[in-house]
Amino acid sequence: MQDVSYYRPSSIKEAIKILSEHGPTAKVLAGGTDVIVQARERTKKITAFVDIKKIPDVMGLGIEGHRGLTIGAATPMYQIYNHSGVQEEYPAIIDSANIIGGKAIQGRASLGGNLCNGSPAADTIPTLIVLEGTANIIGPNGERKIAIEDFCTGPGKTLLQHDEILISLHFKRPAPFSGSRFIRFIPRNEMDIAVVNVASQIQMDGNKIESSRVAIGACAPTPLLLKEISNFIQGKELSQDLLENAAELFNNLITPIEDMRGSPEHRVDLAKTLFKRTMNDAVIRSNGEKVQ
């Protein structure tokens, strides 16, 4: 473990002060499942942990009627997937939260942590993007909001400044006849980093696609919102042919890399398959039905 100092502030203000004084090598500690490992394995220089879990603003979650869902950035996954309101209205968040690491990781890992870690293969970010999530941020100069689709700028890089804290994530209430789905493809059935992951959100008008959002992970330096796909299918009658044709767009939309987890060819094929599967499941959910 690198020579880290540990701080446990009880207010946002105090936390920001510590971060500002320490500089960029001070890191916010929420679940710690990424940053503690990075500090131990010396893959990033970290000199201080600022544990925010005693700050009430970043913990817990709630749905406020039509205003939608707010999730504290450091809220652990297990609290999220055990929340009946999220289960009912935001099932794609459950899809994501339930598969991040093992159960012991889910006792600690948070949406804020997953987002700030900025991995191209992060298993919650495509979901947060298609649900039009907003990141609420506080820094020395006050509050600001960033659309999650803009949050990540490169592998391990985000728009968050070193002295800013991601406080919470906000999601608007899902529209009627809408559904969402996230699927990750991994070689095993649990525990792996995604070879490709896809989240789809869809709003139906009868059999017509009123609107949709599709996001993909592990195929670019950041998770990507694929507007081209939405534009292609929007306003059209849902059919498997339509989805097949839309899937072909992936050939030009993504240029994934070759690494130990996958080849470009396999990733493109998987992207197409996961797109079709998430879409079909999202449609099922838009009818108020459950998917397997």
């Binding site: 710690g32 499942t33 159960k103 006792g107 600690r108």
Partner: peptide, 8 residues
């Protein structure tokens, strides 16, 4: 349930 290696 947590992994104690990932807790300070």
């Amino acid at each position: 349930l947590v992994n104690s290696c990932c807790v300070m």
